[in-house]
Simulated scan of single mutants.
Amino acid sequence: MTTIKATAPAKINLTLHVTGQRTDGYHLLDSLVTFAEVGDVISATRAVDMRLTVSGHFAVGVPTDESNLILRAAEALRSVRGITMGAHLHLEKNLPHAAGIGGGSSDAAATLKLLAELWDVDPLPHDHDAVVALGADVPVCLRAPTPCRMRGIGDHLTDFTALPRAAMVLVNPGVEVPTPATFQGLKTKRNPSMGDLPTGATLPEFAAWLNEQRNDLHPPAAAIAPEIDEALTLLRNQRGVLWAGMSGSGATCVALVKDMGAARQVARPIQIRKGSWWVVPTPLLS
């Protein structure tokens, strides 16, 4: 039987402005989202039933029942497209849990694309109700690897193809930060939006623009996990780092550098100093 594979890349919020909250509880966001080359790997084989197995460095704790977003995404596609067949899915879990880099959402989005190919049906568009219902980050992850400006509850996307070429260093200090608790810790949920994006900027100009932006979830996340600020300090003290910030609701921190050579040089001393942390140099996809 034919098995096909797809990578679910880490989702990186270079900015994350919380601009409001709807009456139904959903938060309104304005975020510049890009993707890293590192990610989980999902494989799928046609089958009569639906089944999920998991391996990889971060496999422990990943559910394999219907609570997993991968299987929820599969069932959503089956329902919308009227599919009766199943699939055996396997997740190689390479990304840390509750890390602010969209691991579950990216897995779900990759599954939607993978199974549309496996079952030979039209893929679901990012703004389909069934996709939006899976979670705020699933629509933008369905656009990967294209960088996007994400607004609304994650359903209003605008491609942003003007990112300068760069690399990143991802640092997760090994602490999980629950997203609901981070949002609850916000002092205000009505903050200014990003404004205009820097079209045509050089990498130093783009980094300077990023330094003027925010991640509104950083303060409440750092209150839960002080290791976030420790990671940011380590990154900012490394030569060659043009910008560093927290992705999503944390605890993964991101440094922007000029190329993979610089990324490896930034990552190495942190890997040596913090052997238990997840520290990965990776290209910035665009």
Rank of each mutant, 00 (worst) to 15 (best):
P96A: 10
L203E: 08
R78D: 05
A167N: 13
P173C: 07
W278R: 00
L203I: 07
I42A: 00
A251L: 02
G174S: 11
T188W: 05
S106R: 00
K5F: 09
R190F: 13
K274L: 12
L203W: 08
F58Q: 13
A76C: 14
F58I: 14
G20E: 07
A110L: 11
R239M: 11
R149I: 14
D216G: 09
Q238K: 12
Q265I: 03
R264S: 09
A6K: 11
P173A: 09
R46K: 13
G20D: 14
A108R: 03
A144K: 01
S43R: 14
L77S: 09
S247V: 00
A201W: 08
P219Y: 00
G240K: 11
D129K: 14
N68D: 13
A6W: 02
D216W: 07
T179Q: 01
H126R: 14
G152T: 12
A181F: 02
R78T: 07
Y26L: 12
A181T: 11
V279M: 01
G245E: 08
A225R: 08
P96F: 05
N94Y: 03
G104F: 06
T179E: 01
I4S: 12
R22V: 07
V140G: 00
C148D: 10
T158M: 07
E176A: 15
H218D: 13
T45Y: 11
R143S: 07
L29D: 01
M1F: 06
D216A: 12
L95V: 04
A221W: 07
L285K: 12
D107L: 03
F183D: 02
I42H: 01
L118A: 12
A74D: 13
V279D: 00
P9R: 04
D216K: 09
V38W: 03
N211P: 05
A36Q: 04
C253D: 10
P219L: 11
A98W: 03
Q265F: 02
L217G: 09
A108W: 01
P139H: 05
P164H: 07
P147M: 05
Q21C: 13
V62I: 15
G135H: 00
L186A: 05
I12P: 00
V38F: 06
A144L: 04
A47P: 02
A47I: 09
D65R: 08
A47E: 12
G240D: 06
H27F: 09
E230P: 02
G102Q: 06
S31D: 04
A225P: 01
F160N: 10
R239Q: 14
V38N: 03
T182E: 02
P281L: 07
A108Y: 04
A225E: 03
Q271H: 05
L91M: 08
K5V: 06
D155Y: 06
L170V: 10
D127I: 13
A225C: 11
L95E: 02
L95M: 03
V171Q: 07
V177K: 00
V257H: 06
T199S: 15
A73N: 04
A98R: 08
V131P: 03
V121E: 12
T146F: 04
L114R: 00
Q21G: 10
P173F: 06
E92V: 08
R268M: 11
P173H: 06
A74G: 14
E227I: 01
P178N: 01
T34V: 15
R81L: 11
H17A: 15
R78E: 11
S286A: 15
A73E: 07
T146M: 10
V241I: 10
I270K: 06
K189S: 13
H128K: 13
A10P: 07
W277Q: 08
D49C: 02
D196K: 14
F160H: 12
